[in-house]
Amino acid sequence: MRYAMVIDTLKCVGCSDCVVACQTENNVPIGYCRDWITESVSGTYPTLELELKSERCNHCSSAPCVRCCPTGASHIVEGGIVKVTANECIGCGACIESCPYDARYQHPEGHVDKCTFCHHRLEKGQLPACVSVCPTKCMYFGDLDDPTSEVSQLLKSRKHKVLAPEAGTKPNVYYLIK
């Protein structure tokens, strides 16, 4: 099983609902976030392109954060989810430095924190909080090892990209584009 998230940039309006839903679901302290919105504009008025998208940990198949963790706090669980065991984390910050997506932050209580694809919800058969709240329904979640899954089908039929492919981390968050 390989969990993946597919985000349709043609539908995302950048409202940040995913950010608040993650905060309230995962008790992320105010002032921090596990996911965020980016906006990029190209062109000159009035010939313009605007891309809005929701970003987070890419749960890389080749995860530098896991490799560099000196205590094993950063680890990979079933489905390829990259997690941090808070009480094994010494807060050294090596993983934060190694991540090409800037997806990790130091929690005020000392340990490093990041997106878990809402592992606790998946265990109950629920979708990640960001996916289930999104008013534009631009986020999809599922198993890429299953060729019939919605995410596999979307990647088969639609043009897509990943972020920072040059980092060679084999990210598992995909963006559908024009």
């Binding site: 409202c15 940040s16 609902d17 608040v20 839903a21 709240v133 008013p135």
Partner: peptide, 8 residues
Amino acid sequence: RLCPRGTG
């Protein structure tokens, strides 16, 4: 699905 303000 609530919007960000509803969720917040």
